[in-house]
Design a protein around this nucleic acid. Sequence first.
DNA 1: CGGGCTGATGTCAGCCGCTGCCATCACTCT
DNA 2: AGAGTGATGGCAGCGGCTGACATCAGCCCG
Lengths: 198, 198
Amino acid sequence: MSMSVTAITYDHAVGRWEPGAPGRLADTAIELFIERGFEPTTVAEIAKRAGLTERTFFRHFADKREVLFGGGGELRDLLVSAIAGAPVSATPIDAVAAALQAGGAALQERREFSLKRQAVIAANPELQERELIKLASFASAMAGALRKRGVEDPAARLTAEAGMVVFHVAFERWINAGDPPELPQLMRDLLGELKAAV
Amino acid sequence: MSMSVTAITYDHAVGRWEPGAPGRLADTAIELFIERGFEPTTVAEIAKRAGLTERTFFRHFADKREVLFGGGGELRDLLVSAIAGAPVSATPIDAVAAALQAGGAALQERREFSLKRQAVIAANPELQERELIKLASFASAMAGALRKRGVEDPAARLTAEAGMVVFHVAFERWINAGDPPELPQLMRDLLGELKAAV
DNA sequence: CGGGCTGATGTCAGCCGCTGCCATCACTCT
DNA sequence: AGAGTGATGGCAGCGGCTGACATCAGCCCG
């Protein structure tokens, strides 16, 4: 997903075959969602301001919501490779903890963008649904990575899902904190809390 | 939500003011979803077979998916009251475990219906999104019930979310098992696995 | 250098989910 | 009998989304 979200108005400033159509659409979309909100913004408006048509929008994004969730694949790969790369001696929960560290560090560097993005998502139940499915797909991917390490089900599934619970809660607290703590540290703390709680 | 899903064709067999419109719509909907699938079934078709109109469907259900999720409120109340009613001496995770027992026992009695329903949901990502949001709302409600017992955040949130992870995984296994095990027992086993895993 | 090939985009028509607005009808209360 | 209430029908319309076909830029190849 494109990161730059400062005011941009492509409109007819770029031609039909100007490169980066998906990025322009994503930038324009989040810009309009912040201006007017997700629901009242129409896809036709997004496309027009990006100098494209509604039909082209739907060629790049499966639906209107997906324009906010395109960057998920990279984070997913990061989590999976962190689990795969954990020491052989690491227990399943240790491998998940390592993935949380890696994911937290990656998000840490995009706090500005994450704030804008979450502000839009927090205001729209439709978008929260999509967010939950994304988190579930992360959990599923991590469970798969654990199985490749020889972890059996249901332990793999449960450990991965528990990890995503920590990830989710830590991310929310990090977003809503006025004075932003270190996200990886938050992940460690909350994982500790979870261990103590169960 | 209405439980009877055997073939019913109201069509013009019932009059305009015949009672039970929401139930008839829900019955007809799941019947058609099983016959033709969720997506290709139109709301107009559901309404017509139920002897009503599309406009009336949307007066009873916020959207096409909601017709499958109307019964969620009762289960939610059950989980919350189980937590509220747990002994004062019970730890947070014990209270959640009690809620899982209550919820599992309730679902146990509706296995036939749950099977049909899950078959429809499993085939449609849109419906899985709604299911996840429902589970998240259950977790949120349980976290609130834990806070009323004096449990602080983030422990309340983490414990409730962990409980819903167990609930979800247990339910899936119970649905997919050819020889259905006891759901409450499954919940206990998986909660034990989770404790061992973290 | 010219002609086809490919891939991205535009254009158009159309379905369906969903909503607002108002009329209609059954039932109730007085 | 008449007014009031609540559920339903009917209709128009918007916006998300898709399929089918035309159009155009850049590229390769002869």
